[in-house]
Nucleic acid binder design. Structure first.
Lengths: 210, 210
DNA sequence: ACAAACTGACTGATCGATCGTTTTTTATTA
DNA sequence: TAATAAAAAACGATCGATCAGTCAGTTTGT
C-alpha cells in the first residue's frame, strides 16, 4: 500500500527538482554536490535517490525545458496570419521569457546545459530538440512569407531561422553574465532585422496556394 | 642559475596549455582531472604544478582568448572606410574563425567558459572583456554610419552591436553541437541583416564632422 | 500491524595538490 | 676535453578531502 498519494509523490519530485534547479543555477552541474541538493530540498540523501536514480538523472530532467516549448507552441496558434507578424510575435514571446525575473535560474541552468551538451549525448539531444521546434516554426513562417512574396527569396529560410535563434541564445548569455543589456532597445533592433528580410518592393507576384 | 632558457620554459608552458585545452574541450573544466592533463602533456603531476599554481589557474589562463581579439583588431585597421563595409568585414573575420577546423577545441572551451563565467568572477571578467572590444568596435562603426546618414538613426548602436555579437555566440553553440549549419548561407543572411540597418533613402543630410 | 517512505552514517573511488627523491643541465674546475 | 659540483626541473607515490551512491534501521500513515 502506498503511503502517499500520487499527488504528494509528484509534489516531492518537484520539491527535489526545484532544489536541484537552484543549486545547478548557482554552481553548475558538476560543482554542485548531491549534498547541496539534499540540504536545499530539506530531505535526506536516501529520499532523493527514491525519486531520481542518479545525479545525471537530475541533470537530464532539468536540461529539458518543456515550458518554453509550450510557450512557443502557443505563439504558433497566433502566427497563422501574416508571416512577418508571426516572426515579430515570436520575438515578443522570447523577449518576455528573457526578461522574466522568475526564469533567471532556468536561463542559467540552460547555459550550463549548453556546455554540458558538448559531452553528454542525452543532454545534447534535449538541447538540440529544444531548438528544433522553434526553428521549424520559423522556417515554416519564412517559407510561407517567401512564397507569398513578402520575404526576400535569396536568403535561405533555414539560415534566417538559425540567425534568429542565435540572437536569442546570445542574449541569454549576455543577460545572465550580468551585463546591462537594454533588452527593449535590442528587441527593437531585432524588429528592424526582421523587417530587413522583407522584400523591398511589394513583389506583386503572388502565386496561388497549391 | 636556471637550467632551461626562457624560451624552453615558455614552450613547456604551452605544452601544458595545449594538453589542458584538448582535455577541457573534450570533457569540460570540472570533468577533466589533473591526471588527464598530466597524462596528455606527457609530463608529471609535479611538473605541471611548477608552471601553474592550480587547476583554476589553468582554467583562467584558457578562458582568455587573446588570439581572437587580435584578429578583430586587425580588421579594425581595415575598417577605416565605409562603416557598413566595416561591419561586413567583421562578419567575414568571425565567419572564418568559426569555420576554422583548427579552432574547434578553442570554440568548445569557449562555450565551457561561458558557463563557467556564471560562477567564477575572474572567468566572467575575461569573457565579458573579451566581447567588450568587438562591441566597442561595432558601436563606433555604427555611430559613424549613423552620423554619416548611412545607418538608420532610430536603432541604438549598442543594440546593433549586441545583436551582431549574439548572432555569433549562437552560431558557435549551434556549430559545436554538431548541427549541420550552412555557415555560408547563414553569413549571407547576416549580410542581409546588416544591409537592413542601412537607411533606405540615401539620406542626403550629411553633417560635417565636428 | 504492516509496508512504504524516509533517514543518515557509511563506503569505495576519485579528486586536486604535495613533497621527498631522482634526473637533467649548466658552470666551473682539472 | 673530461670530470665534478650545484641547482633547477621533473617525477610519482601519497595525502586528506570530497564525491556520488548505498543500506540497515527508523518513522509514518493507513
Amino acid at each position: 500500500m502506498p503511503k502517499i498519494s500520487d499527488k504528494q509523490r509528484e509534489s516531492r519530485r518537484q520539491q527535489i527538482l526545484e532544489a536541484a534547479l537552484a543549486c545547478f543555477a548557482e554552481d553548475g552541474f558538476h560543482q554542485t554536490g548531491m549534498a547541496d541538493i539534499v540540504k536545499r530540498s530539506g530531505l535526506s540523501h536516501g529520499a532523493v535517490y527514491l525519486y531520481f536514480q542518479s545525479k545525471d538523472d537530475l541533470i537530464e530532467a532539468l536540461a529539458d525545458d518543456r515550458h518554453r516549448r509550450e510557450a512557443v507552441l502557443n505563439s504558433v496558434a497566433q502566427g497563422s496570419g501574416d508571416p512577418i507578424e508571426g516572426l515579430h510575435a515570436l520575438v515578443r514571446v522570447y523577449a518576455q521569457w528573457l526578461t522574466d525575473p522568475a526564469g533567471e535560474a532556468r536561463r542559467r541552468v540552460g547555459i550550463h546545459g549548453w556546455a554540458e551538451a558538448l559531452r553528454n549525448r542525452r543532454v545534447r539531444n534535449s538541447v538540440v530538440e529544444g531548438i528544433d521546434m522553434p526553428r521549424a516554426l520559423i522556417v515554416a513562417l519564412v517559407e510561407r512569407g517567401q512564397h507569398d512574396g513578402l520575404i526576400k527569396r535569396d536568403i535561405g529560410a533555414e539560415a534566417i531561422a538559425r540567425v534568429l535563434i542565435a540572437i536569442f541564445q546570445g542574449f541569454v548569455l549576455q543577460k545572465c553574465w550580468g551585463e546591462d543589456v537594454d533588452i527593449e532597445a535590442c528587441m527593437a533592433a531585432v524588429a528592424v532585422v526582421i523587417e530587413g528580410f522583407r522584400t523591398t518592393k511589394p513583389d506583386v507576384r503572388r502565386r496561388a496556394r497549391t
